[in-house]
Simulated assay, not measured.
Amino acid sequence: MWVHPMPDPVALSIGPLHIRWYGLMYLAAFIQFVALARVRIKQPQIARCGWTKEDIDDMLFYGVLGVVLGGRLGEVLFYHPEFYFANPLEIVKVWNGGMSFHGGFLGVLLAMSIWAYKRRRNAWDVLDFIAPMVPLGYAFGRLGNFINAELPGRIADATLPWAMIWPNVDNLPRHPSPLYQTLEGVVEFALLWYFARKERPRMAVGGMFCLLSGMGRFITEYFRVPDYEVHFAGITISAGQMLSLPLIALGIVMLIVAYRRGAHAPDRVPSQEAQTRAG
Results as ranks from 00 to 15, higher is better:
Q272K: 11
C49K: 11
P9T: 08
P16A: 14
R268Q: 13
L24D: 09
G216N: 12
V269L: 07
N148R: 09
S13T: 13
S244Y: 03
E150N: 05
L17A: 07
A263K: 15
V34E: 00
R154I: 12
R261G: 09
H231L: 12
I19D: 07
P178G: 04
E221H: 12
F30Y: 13
A29G: 11
E273L: 11
Q45A: 14
M25I: 11
D128H: 05
V108H: 02
T236V: 11
V10R: 15
Y180S: 05
Y194P: 01
H4K: 07
A233F: 14
G70I: 04
M25A: 09
N171S: 15
A265N: 12
L27W: 07
P246M: 07
Y228I: 06
Q272W: 14
R174A: 10
I219W: 10
L73R: 03
W2G: 11
C210I: 08
E184T: 02
S113L: 07
H231I: 09
W51H: 06
G50F: 03
D57S: 15
S244H: 06
A131D: 04
Q32I: 12
G63D: 02
R260A: 04
M203E: 12
L73H: 02
A190R: 07
A139N: 05
Y79Q: 05
L243G: 01
V230E: 06
T220Y: 00
P88R: 03
R202D: 09
G240N: 00
Y79P: 05
G50D: 02
F223A: 10
M203R: 15
M1R: 14
S113P: 09
A86C: 01
R72A: 06
A123R: 12
P152H: 01
M203N: 13
R277M: 06
R268S: 15
I165D: 07
F146M: 09
I91M: 02
L212R: 11
I14L: 12
A274D: 10
D57N: 15
I114G: 07
R72H: 04
Y79R: 00
P270L: 00
V126T: 02
W115D: 09
V108M: 04
G144V: 08
K198H: 10
K53R: 15
R48F: 13
A258I: 08
V230M: 13
N96I: 03
Y79D: 01
P132N: 00
F232V: 08
S271L: 00
C210G: 09
L172H: 04
H102T: 04
M1Y: 09
C210N: 10
Y22M: 12
Y180A: 07
I155E: 09
A190L: 15
R217Q: 05
K93A: 06
A278G: 01
P246C: 04
G71W: 15
L12E: 04
A37P: 03
N171C: 11
I91P: 00
R142N: 10
V68A: 07
P246H: 07
W162S: 03
F105A: 13
Q45G: 12
G262T: 10
G153M: 03
E82L: 14
L27K: 02
Y138K: 14
Q241W: 02
G207F: 08
H80L: 15
L212E: 06
G141D: 02
L65C: 11
D125A: 15
V67S: 08
A274N: 08
R154E: 08
A123D: 01
F85S: 01
S238W: 05
I130T: 03
A35D: 10
